[in-house]
Design a protein around this nucleic acid. Structure first.
Lengths: 366, 366
DNA sequence: CACGGCAATGAATCGTACT
DNA sequence: AAGTACGATTCATTGCCGT
């Protein structure tokens, strides 16, 4: 695979399901074309005939250690191949989510790290209604594990912190998510009324992932598309999606499902923004506009004083510099947000200078 | 290492702490001599800079030398070596528990499988009070992962299903356990009042593992003993233990701690064979968390007495069972709400156990 | 003594944009 | 590319101290 077989992004097969083996299908896509990948790979180590040893002989059912080892090796090879393609398709600041159980997740996680992905969190899907352990020989297997990883260490991955915090009743979202398994009306059935897919994931899971880790208009790839939960939620949320699925029966169910999905209206898609996303206002503008006068004194919560200078810096004793630097120095702190630290007096009341910044931002919005 | 270097089990260094490197120390022990291994290996955290809270105080990070590895490869080699020795020390029907975070657990789990261990469950320790994510860049890292594995596939490992079910108030124990982090009076301090060990595990965690996966008189090995939580709980529960710890400071703290631990009395250690119980917040959690101690007496409004047992059941005269069943039997009533019926004494006052349930509910409300 | 306020702290892979 | 400056960011629990 060379990197000069690029296809213009304009011809990406957006919002469609590709048929065929996921590794082959990924090879036909250009480098760095997707923002997020959600992957729910098979974890049956025998993979029902889909797994082959490196010499192309088929792995069959086994229970002794050598065969077990062979089976692990074949699974590792499969994992290495699809993860490498997934990595190639990700934009530099893209990220990957992968879900699995104890049968496969340790192998997937180790290979992720080996390839240079940078794990951001492991997340536990805590099932509120799991299937019990009927034989009483083990604990109820009541969760699955997801790994969230950026393509590279230091990448500027998307994380809508405030949005997830809102989803979680005002406290920051944790790494353990309590979500019911997919059943009831959401569970897709085939013509005979049986479940259409053995491991259909709940839309709530994908909703949280896509709200938290993508922006509207992002491209989301699911190389193990199944009956299309990823595509359905992506469509609802106004994200573009690409699915890959080799089983025709699943593709058919997914096509039908997706044709019925409607995008949420635009205002419903807006999520709470971080302050970081708001425009930067230089402190000097407050002076330029006459909201604060040169020579005026600012005061900190602990009673520290500083004088405003004409160039938008402060001076306190022998300390000069920005509102942040002077605040940090006076507090002996490694850093300080001068906007919330400093206050001024008007009509006998003490007011945060951040109020003035908000006034300017409000004017900019008009 | 040949298999004929066996030492008679009689000379096993039971109930003592071995000093030195865990791999070397394990090599000095005979094949197939322990029933259960609990291992809390270094996590290889790979922390880079310093982290400050929003109030500018610095987070006391785990940056100890013993947690530093040069590369994944070095960590894998370390993992391979200690796991191989652990496997050799296990009896054929023995089992291993290992705890870790996303930094290391995938590598440990994969190597476990490579060596022929058979994973029985992965278990999530959901922390009720984790440290938040201060910069809002990721999800709150609110859990750690444990792997429970038998030495071999098909082994007849110990699993006290009924005991864990009783601990969970009559419903099957799940693979996700909500337990607070270790702090307050349980957290060991050094001479200066600082935490004696950066990563001391809560006794409730070990209590559940040892009640569920060992029998009285079993030998429990902890190759990363630290300040001895495994030994302390093993001693309370009447299990023999062996600890290995290379840091003298930790050994000293552990020795002092263990000298003070007392074994629970015999009736408290008997584990229920029957079925029964039903409600919601498990009474057993009060025991695991140390809110009530095995052997402690409860009293009813009419002065009936009952003793708390390690699996969360009560015993009064010849009546054994849940708080509800014992209450009903003593009253000659068809049923009884044990939560309002039973009381315990603290500081000379009589308090309903329902107060403790409300505390747990408050914790779990999040 | 009870209660409230305030400080301390826990296995953490914890910036970003501009010059 | 590297250096500099801005400025955003926390939850549950324990324990001390003052009223």
């Amino acid at each position: 695979m060379t990197t000069n077989t690029k296809t213009p992004a304009a011809v990406l097969p957006l919002n469609s399901i590709l048929s065929g083996d996921c590794i082959e299908a990924m090879r036909a896509l250009p480098d760095a074309c997707v923002d997020l990948i959600f992957a729910d790979p098979p974890y049956n180590l025998q993979l029902k005939g889909t797994l082959h040893r490196p010499n192309n002989t088929q792995v069959d059912a086994c229970d002794d250690h050598w065969d077990q080892f062979d089976s692990f090796r074949a699974y590792d090879e499969f994992t290495r191949a699809w993860l490498a393609e997934a990595r190639r398709l990700l934009k530099p600041d893209g990220a990957l989510w992968v879900i699995g159980s104890y049968h496969n997740i340790f192998r997937v996680g180790a290979e992720l790290q080996n390839q240079g992905f940078w794990i951001l969190n492991d997340v536990v899907w805590r099932k509120s209604n799991p299937m019990p352990n009927f034989r009483g020989k083990r604990l109820t297997n009541a969760h699955e594990t997801m790994i969230w990883a950026s393509r590279d260490e230091g990448a500027k991955y998307t994380f809508n912190y405030e949005a997830l915090k809102e989803l979680n009743d005002g406290v920051q979202m944790r790494s353990d998510w309590v979500i019911p398994i997919c059943n009831g009306g959401e569970r897709l059935k085939d013509d005979k009324g049986d479940k259409a897919h053995p491991t259909q994931k709940p839309e709530a899971l994908l909703h949280r992932i896509l709200v938290g880790c993508t922006k509207p208009g992002d491209v989301v790839l699911d190389p193990f598309f199944g009956t299309g939960t990823t595509g359905a939620v992506a469509k609802m949320l106004g994200r573009d999606w690409i699915g890959i699925e080799r089983e025709e029966a699943y593709r058919k169910v997914a096509e039908k499902r997706l044709s019925k999905v409607r995008r949420f209206d635009k205002t419903a898609l807006e999520v709470t923004q971080s302050k970081r996303a708001e425009p930067r206002v230089p402190f000097g503008q407050l002076v330029e506009r006459g909201m604060l006068r040169p020579g005026e004194m600012l005061v900190s919560p602990r009673g520290q004083m500083a004088k405003v200078r004409a160039d938008g810096t402060l001076i306190a004793d022998d300390v000069k510099g920005s509102i942040h630097k002077v605040g940090a120095t006076l507090e002996g702190a490694p850093s300080c947000n001068g906007w919330t630290y400093w206050h001024f007096r008007r009509d006998g009341k003490t007011v945060s200078i951040d109020v003035l910044r908000q006034q300017i931002r409000a004017e900019m919005g008009r």
